[in-house]
Nucleic acid binder design. Structure first.
Length: 267
DNA sequence: CGGGGTTCCTGGCCGC
DNA sequence: TGCGGCCAGGAACCCC
C-alpha cells in the first residue's frame, strides 16, 4: 500500500528517468479505472510531481497524467514494450523505445488525464489537505483542522483532508510516536504539535529508507525499501510496546486495522 | 456537506 | 490435501 514515502520514492525516480520523455503510444486494459491511460499520448513529460499519494505527471504543461497506485500498483521502466503481461494494466511507449509499465494485482490503482490543475473528477485529490512538509502547515493549523471534526484522530488522518499522504501504516506509527490514542476525538494544542512532529519524523525516516516493504510495493528500480525494519507499531499487535512494554492492542477503527498501546497512547 | 457504510479485488491464511 | 470463508486496504460512491 504505497503511502507518501513510497510514492515519493517512486516520484524521485520517475522524475530522473522520465522527465523530457515523449509518450508516443499507450495501451490499457478495458477498465474505466485505468482506461484514461490511452489518452496520455503524443505529449512530453515536463515534470513529475506528487500530492499526497497521487503521482502527477505534467504533459506539455497542459494536461496531467494522474496515477494512484492503490494497494498494489507498481510502475516499471523497461527497454522495450512488455513481453510479460502478468498483472499488466497499462503501458506507454516512450520516444526512445523504452516503456513505462503499470502493473496492479488487486486493481485498486487508478489513472486519470485532466487539464492541468483540474482535479474536480478526483474528489479526494480535489479536497486534499496540506502536504505534511509544507511550511505553512503548523501545529496550530493541525490543531484547528482536527477540531473541525469529532471523528477519531486516526479516521481524520486517513481521510486525507487534514494532512495529505498518511495511510494506515504511518497513521499508526505517528500516533504511537506522539503517544496519542487513535480513538482520541479531541486533540489539544500541544499534542497537535507533537502529532505534526511525529508525522514528519515518521514520513521522513521512511523516505530515507526508501519506503516500507509490504505486499507488492516496489519502486521503479525494483527496490522494496527497508522501513519495515523500523516500524514501532504497525504490524506489531500482540508484541510489547517499545516504550512501556505493554502488549500492543488491535481493533478495527474506521474500517481499518489499528494497532496501538492502550497504556502510553492517551486519549 | 459531513459522516457512515459499501464496493472494488485477489493472494494468503484459517479452520475443518 | 482441498476448499469455503474471510481478511487486508484507499478511495470512489451512495445515501442520509
Amino acid at each position: 500500500m504505497p503511502e507518501l514515502p513510497e510514492v515519493e520514492t517512486i516520484r524521485r525516480q520517475l522524475d530522473t528517468l522520465l522527465t523530457g520523455s515523449r509518450l508516443e503510444e499507450a495501451w490499457a486494459v478495458p477498465d474505466p479505472k485505468v482506461q484514461a491511460a490511452t489518452r496520455a499520448v503524443h505529449a512530453t513529460v515536463t515534470s513529475v510531481h506528487r500530492r499526497g499519494k497521487y503521482l502527477l505527471l505534467a504533459l506539455d504543461d497542459r494536461h496531467e497524467l494522474i496515477i494512484h497506485l492503490g494497494m498494489t500498483g507498481t510502475l516499471e521502466i523497461t527497454d522495450t514494450l512488455p513481453t510479460d503481461r502478468h498483472l499488466l494494466r497499462a503501458w506507454w511507449r516512450l520516444g526512445d523505445g523504452r516503456a513505462l509499465l503499470f502493473r496492479d494485482q488487486r486493481t485498486f490503482g487508478r489513472i486519470s488525464v485532466v487539464p492541468t490543475g483540474d482535479h474536480t473528477s478526483l474528489p479526494t485529490l480535489h479536497a486534499l489537505g496540506p502536504e505534511p512538509f509544507d511550511a505553512h502547515l503548523t501545529g496550530d493549523r493541525l490543531y484547528h483542522a482536527l477540531r473541525a471534526s469529532r471523528s477519531p484522530v486516526k479516521v481524520q488522518l486517513l481521510g486525507q483532508r487534514v494532512v495529505a499522504g498518511v495511510g494506515n501504516i504511518y497513521a499508526d506509527e505517528a500516533l504511537w510516536n506522539a503517544a496519542i490514542a487513535p480513538t482520541a476525538t479531541r486533540v489539544g494544542r500541544t499534542r497537535a504539535h507533537d502529532l505534526l512532529d511525529a508525522i514528519r519524523t515518521v514520513l521522513s525516516d521512511a523516505i530515507d529508507h526508501g519506503g516500507t516493504r509490504l505486499r507488492d510495493y516496489r519502486s521503479i528500480d525494483g527496490d522494496t525499501g527497508t522501513h519495515q525494519h523500523h516500524l514501532d507499531c504497525y504490524g506489531r499487535a500482540g508484541q510489547p510496546c517499545r516504550r512501556c512494554g505493554t502488549i500492543l492492542s488491535h481493533r478495527t477503527l474506521g474500517g481499518r486495522g489499528t494497532t496501538w498501546c492502550r497504556h502510553c497512547q492517551r486519549r
